[in-house]
Design a protein around this nucleic acid. Structure first.
Lengths: 140, 140
DNA sequence: CGGCATCCGAGGCGATACTG
DNA sequence: CAGTATCGCCTCGGATGCCG
């Protein structure tokens, strides 16, 4: 998912209601490689509730492996969306919190969550209908 | 990416500014498996500009293989976000357009794109800083 | 506790060739 | 044009084990 395909053009998608056909590219891709990652968003969602320690995150997000949690928070830290604080206690304690940039993403995540709740039933029904009309034709 | 991990709990994430630690789950996951997909979003972005044919989509999104475009539009159709219309001409012509549900996602995609443009420079700088401070420690 | 290194299987995805 | 089918790479990501 995070693999970089060789980009040639880098123009801004217009997003006009009825615009001309054009290249969809530019920064959208960068964000989606991040926001699109299931774990990244879930971490942001949890951190939106407040500062969390490593173990807290892992327990909260259930299903994430420790490896993926490590990778995810590291990438978010690298992107400047999450701040990592290490307290030299024994055993070590590490706090994670959203930066200003990361916090600004929370609104979008909320919006996504809202949209999800509003449409999940419709989507589920649509899928059933589709599967009923296309027997054996599984797309997953 | 689309694999289902066994879910046990299915409660709604609270998203309170400073709430208690809890399970991040519920419908967010469903949506993210869809919205999170790079291709899905790019298709929605392009269709937000108007009705498109298969080839138009493929040319607009550059980088997408015909296989992935097929899979992506099929899944979006199955979810009821995209409507597929086949005209029995020769050669065949197929139009894709957003449904009402799909169109409602456009706002979120716009928001994501906006956020992307606002923060991409900051993120890029943050990455450089991080990489400079952590030589050889590549996370990708 | 909070990691990192390694192994390894599953499947996402691209490339290619063929059909209506 | 708009797909379907097949093959194969290659990455994602889980499991396991070790360290400070």
């Amino acid at each position: 998912m995070r693999s970089r395909s060789p980009r040639t053009s880098a123009q801004v998608a217009e997003l006009e209601p009825c615009g001309q056909e054009g290249h969809v590219d530019c920064g959208i891709r960068d964000v989606l490689d991040r926001v699109g990652d299931r774990w990244s968003v879930l971490v942001i969602v949890e951190l939106a509730n407040g500062t969390r320690r490593f173990r807290q995150l892992q327990r909260a997000i259930d299903g994430i492996s420790q490896r993926m949690l490590t990778l995810t928070v590291r990438r978010l830290e690298r992107d400047g969306l999450v701040e990592r604080t290490v307290y030299p206690t024994v055993p070590a304690q590490v706090d994670y919190r959203l930066t200003a940039a990361g916090a600004s993403l929370t609104h979008l995540v909320r919006a996504l969550a809202d949209w999800s709740l509003e449409h999940r039933d419709g989507i589920a029904r649509s899928r059933e209908d589709y599967d009923a009309r296309h027997p054996g034709h599984d797309i997953r």
